[in-house]
Design a protein around this nucleic acid. Structure first.
Lengths: 219, 219
DNA sequence: CCCAGAAATTGTACGGCGTACAGAGATAGG
DNA sequence: CCTATCTCTGTACGCCGTACAATTTCTGGG
C-alpha cells in the first residue's frame, strides 16, 4: 500500500508550459511535434511523456485550453439581450481561435467532452433557457451554435495554407476574389455572378450574417 | 518548343486508382500515407509523385472527389419543395462522408475552391434563388449551409477515436450517454440535466433539427 | 541522519514517414 | 533506328513518435 505520495524529484516543467510551447510551435511552424515542444522547453523529447501519455493527449489538452479561454465580457453581462450575448460570445471565440490558425485546425479532431467544453456548454444553456427555450431545445440549440461557430472557424483557417498568423481579413478576401473570378460563367453562371459574395465568406460580416439567420431560426 | 506531347512510357496507374487506394487506407487504418498508397497499388513510394506533387495534393484531390460524389436523387427533383431538396442533399452528403470517417476528418483541412465544390455551390444557389432569395443572400445562405453540414459531420466523426467504420448510431449514443452521465450536477446542473439530449448530438434527428432551424432562419 | 525506493529525466534505438536525387527502363515522333 | 522524354526504382536523408533501460534527484520512514 501507500505507493501513492512517495514522490521522486520535483518536476522541472508543467503541463501548461508544455501547452504554451505547443501553441507557440503551431503559431510559428504550423505543425506540432513532441520533439519540437521538448526542444522549446529545453528537455529531451521523452520528458514530455511524463506529462502526457502521447501526442494525441497533448492535442486534446491544447484544444481544451483554447476552448476554455473563451468566455468574457458581454457574454456574462446578464443585463444585455440574449442575442447580443451570444453574438459577443461567438465573436470572442472566433477572435481567440483565429489568432492561432494552426491550432484552430485541430479543434474538430477530438471528441468534445472535456470540462472546459462542458463549462462553455453550461453557460450557453443558461442563456438559452433564460431566453425562454425549454431545456431540451436549449441543449439542441447549444450544439447547433457550437457546430456553426467551430465549423465557420475551421473553414476560415483552412482557407489559408501558409503557416504563421492569418493575413488581414481584407487581404484574404482579395485573394479569394482572384480565385473565384476564374470561375467559368458558361458552366457555373450563378457562382460566377456570386464571386464577390463568395470572396467574403470568411469575413466577419458573413460570420455574423449566418449567426443571425441561425438565431432567427431559434426564435 | 513542342516539348508538349512527346511522351514516354504509358502510365501504369491513374490518379483515380491512387485516390481509391488512399480512401481504402483511410477506411482501414484511419490514416493516410504516401508509402501506404504506393504499397497498396504495388509501386515504389516515389511513383506516387508522378501523379501528385505532394501529400497535401493527394488530400485535396481526395476531398474534392468525396464532395463531388454528393449529388443525387431528390435534390435534383425540381418538383419537390426547396426545403425538402436541401434536406435530401444534406442527408446525402452526411451519409456519404460518414461512411468514410477518417477521410471526412480531412474535409476542412484545405481550401474549398475545387471544381466539384463549385458545382455543389452552383446547385445550392439554383435551389435557393429558385426559392425566392436574392442572389447575394442566396450565396450567403449557401455558405451557411455548407458550414453547418461540414461542421456537423466533422464533429460527428471526431467523436469516435478508433479507426475503421463508425459503429451504429445507437451504440455511439449509448457511449456518449455514459460519458455525459458523469457530468457533476453540482457544478454543471443544466448540462447534467441535458445529458440525454447531449448524447444525441451526433444523431440524425439532431442533424435534421439543426438544419431545420437554419432553414427557418432563412425564410 | 541516512537510505530505500519512487519519480523525472536522459541516452539510445527502432521503425515509419515524406520526399529529394540520380539512374534505368520504356515509349513514340523524327 | 535513334533519341528526347517520361515513368518508375534504388537509395538516402532528416524528421517523427515513442519504447526501453539507465541515471539522476528527491522524499518519507527507520
Amino acid at each position: 500500500m501507500a505507493t501513492r505520495g512517495r514522490p521522486g524529484p520535483r518536476r522541472t516543467l508543467s503541463e501548461d508550459e508544455l501547452l504554451a510551447a505547443a501553441l507557440e510551435l503551431l503559431d510559428s511552424e504550423g505543425q506540432l511535434s513532441i520533439r519540437g515542444i521538448a526542444a522549446k522547453v529545453g528537455v529531451a523529447p521523452n520528458a514530455v511523456y511524463t506529462y502526457f501519455p502521447d501526442k494525441s493527449a497533448v492535442i486534446r489538452a491544447l484544444v481544451e485550453k483554447l476552448l476554455g479561454e473563451s468566455d468574457t465580457g458581454a457574454f456574462t453581462d446578464e443585463t444585455k439581450p440574449w442575442r447580443d450575448r451570444i453574438e459577443a460570445l461567438a465573436l470572442g471565440v472566433r477572435e481567440r481561435l483565429v489568432a492561432h490558425p494552426s491550432a484552430a485546425g485541430l479543434l474538430m479532431s477530438a471528441p468534445m467532452d472535456g470540462p472546459r467544453t462542458t463549462a462553455l456548454n453550461e453557460r450557453l444553456l443558461d442563456v438559452l433557457i433564460g431566453a425562454g427555450l425549454d431545456p431540451a431545445d436549449a441543449a439542441r440549440a447549444t450544439y447547433l451554435l457550437i457546430v456553426y461557430v467551430l465549423g465557420a472557424i475551421a473553414l476560415e483557417v483552412a482557407d489559408e495554407t501558409d503557416p504563421g498568423p492569418l493575413p488581414p481579413e481584407e487581404d484574404r478576401i482579395t485573394r479569394r476574389r482572384a480565385t473565384f473570378d476564374q470561375i467559368p460563367a458558361e458552366i457555373f453562371p450563378r457562382s460566377a455572378a456570386a464571386a464577390p459574395t463568395m470572396a467574403r465568406f470568411i469575413s466577419t460580416d458573413q460570420y455574423l450574417w449566418g449567426l443571425r439567420r441561425l438565431l432567427d431560426g431559434l426564435e
